[in-house]
């Protein structure tokens, strides 16, 4: 490539189209994975919390087994997990290539992470509040829904923000095994075809995405923090 290619309108509109499509693919992967992660991760975090010592369904054996599984999954590097679960991915979506296929490792790789973050967020709720709710006749489910989750909301949103940002990073990595999205584009054009302009553009878009997520997260945290 040379400097004149920057002035070539046709080339730019073609690259623009590629970047646009890749961005949409990334957003799709990130959005679906984040949603699944939160939907599964919150109950996982709740279960980790309420079965731990000092909470109402304390069960050391259950907690230890679950915590061990979560830790084991968390310590597998994402890139290895991605490859290792290809058979599972094929089973679920029928293929191991493409954006939808990338959602499987993204989700499985991030659920243990978010589960732990949810657990620690909920743990910040003072024990006295649980006790007060119990003294008013609250059931365990009411305590989770009406005390723990609302009271930990600022922490939860912060941690969801972190998780989504991690998923954005992982989704770019998923591109390396044909997952599509900005990572895929950066590898195929930026790296293999030495297109620095494509490479730089993808990086800029990723940075912008992370920044926007962070802003939204900070804003929502401020909105629901009344402490």
């Amino acid at each position: 490539m040379n400097a004149s290619s920057f002035l070539n309108f046709d080339a730019w509109s073609r690259i623009g189209g590629l970047l646009w499509n890749a961005s949409l693919e990334t957003l799709y992967m990130v959005f679906v994975s984040s949603a699944v992660c939160i939907v599964v991760g919150v109950p996982l975090g709740v279960i980790l919390l309420v079965t731990s010592k000092g909470y109402f369904w304390y069960s050391p054996r259950f907690y230890n087994v679950l915590a061990a599984v979560v830790n084991a999954l968390r310590s597998v590097p994402f890139i290895i997990l991605m490859v290792a679960i290809i058979p599972l991915t094929k089973l679920i979506v029928g293929t191991s290539i493409g954006t939808t296929a990338a959602i499987v490792p993204l989700t499985i790789g991030t659920i243990p992470f978010i589960g732990r973050l949810v657990e620690t967020s909920l743990r910040t709720v003072p024990h006295g509040l649980i006790e007060a709710a119990q003294s008013m006749g609250a059931s365990p489910w009411q305590i989770v829904r009406r005390v723990l989750i609302p009271e930990a909301m600022p922490e939860l949103i912060q941690n969801f923000t972190i998780t989504i940002i991690v998923i954005i990073g992982f989704s770019a990595m998923a591109g390396t095994i044909g997952g599509g999205g900005l990572g895929d584009l950066a590898i195929r054009y930026g790296y293999m075809r030495f297109r620095a302009d494509v490479m730089i553009s993808t990086v800029v878009i990723l940075i912008a995405m992370v920044q926007i997520v962070q802003w939204i997260g900070d804003y929502l945290t401020r909105m629901c923090d009344h402490r």
Binding site: P126, G128, L129, E131, A132, Q134, S135, M136, G137, A138, S139, V147, P150, E151, M153, C224, H226, R227
Partner: peptide, 21 residues
């Protein structure tokens, strides 16, 4: 017990109010 506790109010040293409400 949960039903019975509705007839027994309790207040605390550090108030234990919901900060989010």
């Amino acid at each position: 017990l949960r039903a019975a506790r509705r007839h027994i109010g309790m207040i605390f040293q550090n108030f234990n109010l919901l900060s989010s409400a």
